[in-house]
């Protein structure tokens, strides 16, 4: 016996498709924020640079670690636009190739943290009770450690490598998304459209998938955009202490670490990787601000 209810559209994925329809509007709003657009352009340039790194780097072999001791710590010149490092390698090439791990760690960590954290938070918030308690106490355990310290401890335990660095940062990161998603879910589940779904007997997980997650996604995305910059910084910090990308493979963090020793002899060696981290992290933060202003009506600027 089935009941055909009036007013329920044929296509049930309303919340999801609405999100996509909104994106056009979002873009139009975001375009008005000059800083955000500039940040977006900068980020796009860096990402393109990372994607095409082996073709863009003037000395790809040096970028990957081939020593060139004859030109050790040469200042910037026409042959080496950003100078050379302690092994005489072209700094520009090292930076371009080093952008791959540096950028991907940010995107990967935030992506994975969102993927793990958001559904868990939605489940915790929707079902409540012991499920909520269990999930949230686990997040409390993770949040009780300073994020960088936890990441360092985990990657020291797993062994120093790029992949382990990504995992360990993600481990320190996901609970924030769980908290965020849970808070949103708790308020969402009292709303009429969710109650209506429940009333007609839609199973809990379906409600979460169709109604909760699409609505939680907006704040999570805002948070993610803001977080990428911090994740890149944390990735660089791990590499800096020797727990990320292993030399001679380049990464902005490990380049900075080596450069410390040569700060008097070749300041460019420390400056450019540092500058790259600064610019990228700042761009993601500014973009995050812009996206939040557009997506999050509660914090939207007035006037």
């Amino acid at each position: 016996m089935t009941v055909r209810l009036e007013g329920i559209p044929e296509k049930p994925r309303t919340a999801w498709s609405a999100r996509f329809q909104e994106s056009g509007l979002m873009w139009r709003a975001l375009r008005r924020d000059r800083l955000a657009v500039l940040s977006l352009v900068i980020i796009a340039i860096f990402i393109l640079g990372a994607v095409f790194a082996p073709w863009l780097a003037p000395y790809p072999d040096q970028g990957m670690g081939k020593a060139n001791l004859k030109e050790k710590l040469d200042p910037p010149s026409s042959a080496h636009l950003l100078g050379t490092d302690d092994l005489g390698r072209d700094l520009l090439s090292r930076m371009i190739l080093g952008s791959r791990p540096s950028l991907s760690i940010g995107l990967f960590v935030v992506g994975l943290a969102m993927l793990i954290g958001t559904p868990l938070g939605a489940i915790a918030g929707y079902f409540g009770g012991w499920i909520d308690q269990t999930i949230m106490r686990i997040t409390d355990i993770f949040l009780s450690f300073p994020a960088l310290l936890l990441a360092i401890a985990v990657s020291a335990a797993l062994g120093a490598s790029f992949f382990n660095a990504m995992l360990s940062i993600t481990l320190a990161w996901w609970p924030w998304y769980t908290r965020l998603a849970r808070a949103q879910t708790v308020s969402l589940k009292e709303q009429t459209f969710v109650e209506a779904s429940r009333a007609i007997g839609v199973p809990g997980f379906t409600i979460i998938r169709r109604h909760i997650i699409p609505n939680v996604l907006t704040p999570a995305l805002v948070q993610a955009t803001m977080d990428i910059g911090s994740a890149i910084l944390m990735g660089a910090a791990l590499s800096f202490v020797g727990l990320g990308v292993q030399l001679p493979r380049p990464d902005w963090g490990n380049m900075l670490n080596v450069a410390r020793l040569y700060f008097n002899d070749g300041p460019w060696f420390a400056v450019f990787p540092g500058l790259a981290i600064l610019i990228v992290a700042m761009s993601f933060n500014l973009l995050g601000d812009g996206v939040r202003d557009v997506l999050d009506p509660q914090s939207r600027r007035t006037g």
Partner: peptide, 22 residues
């Protein structure tokens, strides 16, 4: 170079890189 880099390094630390600047 030194002056430029000193200024930039300070900026870097402010940005929270966690790198102890020489």
């Amino acid at each position: 170079w030194f002056v430029v880099s000193a200024v930039l390094l300070v900026a870097l630390v402010v940005a929270g890189c966690g790198a102890p600047a020489p």
